[in-house]
Design a binder for these strands. Structure first.
Length: 256
DNA sequence: ATGGTGGCGCGGCCA
């Protein structure tokens, strides 16, 4: 069994105790982190090593930053799309055995029509190009992370209120669909077709308590991995802790 | 309709 998870931790410095507890509880082979919000020189490699996890990472000051924590070493690591020169650290690709893993922190986009929205759509185009090329080289591939896109209205607590806004706009959803059309599957939807299952809840207005969230943290499995996917679940428990991340971890299991 | 919270870092940006 190969188990892999994604978690936007919103500062690894603050959330390190939660991450360590969760790793010890769930023991995944790989955990992809987003928004670590720290520079490489202060990455907590030793604390993770002590509980049996190695790390590769691409950090920056204050914002963004991604990492892959794993029991076995990562190989063939990349931290950028070849076609995009971007100072923002949002991409981390690596192999774990014969599985190609791509950890993403997709830009939020702020507001539809804004400069940040244009950056998001452009970034997604470069992602598409990269995945298109990678797909030809790797049968077993997993793309996971904070996509900052809710795939469809089941993934939004109040679709009418959210209509055409950031995270759900048609252009964003089309960009995600294009990537799925390269031969990927939303693991969560292989097992659950009902609405109301979320991975992010705003810190404000008691959104978590009222389950007013969106499902934007995804694990995409390639065609070859789809039949091997045994489960995919959101773990809401860490969201209930003191000083939680605003995102919950999502964990998938594969029979390989 | 607005503001509500949290992280970084100490004012304002970002989510």
């Amino acid at each position: 069994m190969f188990t892999i998870a994604t978690w936007n931790v919103n500062s690894l410095r603050v959330r390190l105790p939660h991450v360590i507890d969760w790793l010890q509880d769930k023991q995944p082979d790989v955990l992809a982190l987003q928004e670590i919000k720290l520079t490489d020189d202060v990455f907590p490699s030793e604390a993770l090593q002590e509980i049996g996890y190695q790390a590769v990472f691409a950090g920056q000051k204050t914002y963004n930053g991604v990492a892959l924590l794993s029991r076995e070493p990562a190989t063939n690591t990349i931290t950028d799309f070849p076609s995009l020169d971007d100072p923002q650290r949002r991409v981390l690709g690596a192999n774990f055995g014969d599985i190609r893993v791509l950890n993403l922190y997709v830009p939020n986009g702020s507001e539809v029509g804004s400069e940040k929205y244009a950056y998001k759509l452009n970034w997604l185009q470069h992602l598409y190009q990269y995945v298109q090329a990678e797909r030809e080289q790797h049968e077993k591939m997993i793309i996971l992370g904070d996509f900052n896109i809710a795939p469809d209205d089941r993934d939004v607590h109040d679709p009418e209120a959210w209509q055409d806004s950031i995270l759900v706009s048609p252009e964003e959803r089309e960009a995600l669909q294009k990537i799925l059309d390269l031969g990927f599957h939303d693991s969560f939807r292989l097992f659950e077709s009902e609405a109301g299952h979320f991975s992010w809840w705003d810190y404000r207005a008691a959104a978590f308590r009222r389950n007013r969230g969106v499902r934007i943290d995804l694990i995409l499995a390639s065609d070859a991995l789809k039949p091997l996917c045994a489960s995919c679940d959101t773990d809401v428990e860490p969201r209930k802790l003191e000083r939680p991340s605003d995102h919950a971890p999502v964990l998938a299991q594969f029979d390989c």
